[in-house]
Design a protein around this nucleic acid. Structure first.
Length: 154
DNA sequence: GCCAACGTTGGC
DNA sequence: GCCAACGTTGGC
């Protein structure tokens, strides 16, 4: 059982969108970074905890918690010619990018990035490191507990 | 829109 | 394999 932070642009997929989806579950598509992909491929397991983070928006922050709801499978968007996530080097036989299913679990108090930065126990979070751009990053059990407490979800 | 930081590409 | 050029991320 591991914990992760996953970034989504709310204009594309917000936490509310996941809550409203059938079975509160969506495919996590569009990862185009090898380090993030490898976390999904090599380390994620069904049941892992997810901090659902809103990026590139007016108030970036943690919007809710979710769980990994499937193993890895090929990301369908890599084959969509003309689409934003099309990858000409990917083939059906040798896909390059993968997805997992993500199921929303609970929505607590919204935790803005600025607030997270002010919490001493969270200063080692990958998210908060200078220049960190990873769309999927590991979260320690201690960081997970702290954030759930801050969100009122403990 | 700006720009720092980082990742990828491709010529050599 | 190096590294300059270019592209992307994402907070502000």
């Amino acid at each position: 059982m591991r914990y992760w932070l996953m970034k989504s642009e709310p204009d594309e997929v917000s936490f509310d969108d996941v809550l409203a989806a059938p079975d509160r579950t969506v495919a996590w598509f569009g990862v185009r970074n090898y380090q993030a992909r490898n976390f999904m491929r090599d380390q994620m397991q069904v049941g892992d905890g997810i901090l659902f983070y809103h990026s590139s928006c007016a108030v970036p922050g943690v919007a809710g918690i979710a769980r990994v709801a499937s193993g890895a499978y090929p990301d369908a968007t890599q084959f969509e010619e003309g689409g934003k996530y099309f990858d000409p080097k990917a083939t059906r036989e040798t896909p390059r990018w993968i997805s997992v299913d993500v199921q929303a679990l609970a929505q607590g108090r919204y935790l803005p990035l600025t607030e997270l930065r002010a919490v001493p126990e969270l200063e080692d979070m990958v998210l908060l490191q200078k220049g960190s751009r990873l769309s999927i990053s590991p979260v320690t059990p201690g960081q997970w507990k702290k954030i759930l407490a801050l969100a009122g979800l403990s």
